[in-house]
């Protein structure tokens, strides 16, 4: 085998499912082993790719700049956080005019507050302003619908260890994600304005 580590696939997941996830795990004890977020439909995600509408940006940092962006898809919002270690993404969020379509490539991160609630966000490797690129947004929604359906179909397979892990970890009926997919696709029938208004 080659010594180059395999690059992790960027999973396609809608915001609602992403935010329902809470469990992270590693597949080995190595400190540098990748951390995976377990998606409720039964797949491990070390990286995600999102195309959505950036509706708000805020500097939520106390001592230094720490930018939060809200990226909306037909099912909910992704929160993207970029600070000094993501300088390109941070300066993009500082300067961009909202609303606009953006593409985000990044790593899932989880945060647990005092009351034990887990929040999931994206630490971006890249955030790109797609301007009026409606086609990329529509393509992402359809693609994410397809990948989500693939996961739902494989959810109960005996051989699908992540399906099994999701069944044991989350008390979430997988059917609700099927309805989410239908809603997301139906939202494309209307104008884009409706997509944003329906969120």
């Amino acid at each position: 085998m080659s010594s180059t580590p395999t690059r992790e696939v960027a999973r396609r997941v809608f915001a609602r499912e992403f935010n329902d996830a809470a469990h992270t795990f590693k597949e080995s004890d190595d400190d540098r082993a990748p951390v995976y977020l377990l998606l409720p439909t039964g797949e491990q995600a070390n990286r995600v790719f999102v195309v959505g509408t950036l509706t708000e940006t805020d500097d939520v940092g106390e001592d230094s700049e720490y930018w939060r962006g809200r990226v909306v898809d037909p099912t909910g919002s992704f929160f993207v956080y970029a600070g000094q270690y993501q300088p390109d993404a941070a300066s993009m969020l500082r300067e961009v005019e909202t609303p606009t379509h953006v593409a985000v490539v990044g790593k899932p991160r989880t945060y647990e507050d005092e009351s034990g609630d887990t929040y999931v966000s994206v630490r971006p490797e890249a955030v790109v302003d797609l301007d009026e690129n409606e086609a990329a947004y529509r393509r992402w929604v359809v693609e994410t619908a397809e990948r989500t359906l693939d996961r739902i179909e494989a959810y109960d397979d005996e051989a699908n260890e992540y399906g099994q892990m999701a069944r044991e970890t989350y008390d979430l009926p997988v059917d609700q994600y099927k309805r989410m997919v239908v809603e997301a696709l139906e939202s494309l029938d209307g104008e884009t304005d409706d997509v944003e208004a329906s969120v």
Binding site: R138, V142, L149, K178, V181, L185, D189
Partner: peptide
């Protein structure tokens, strides 16, 4: 843009 119709039918 891709056509969502076939995926919708599948869903």
């Amino acid at each position: 843009p891709t056509d969502p119709e076939s995926v919708l039918i599948k869903a």
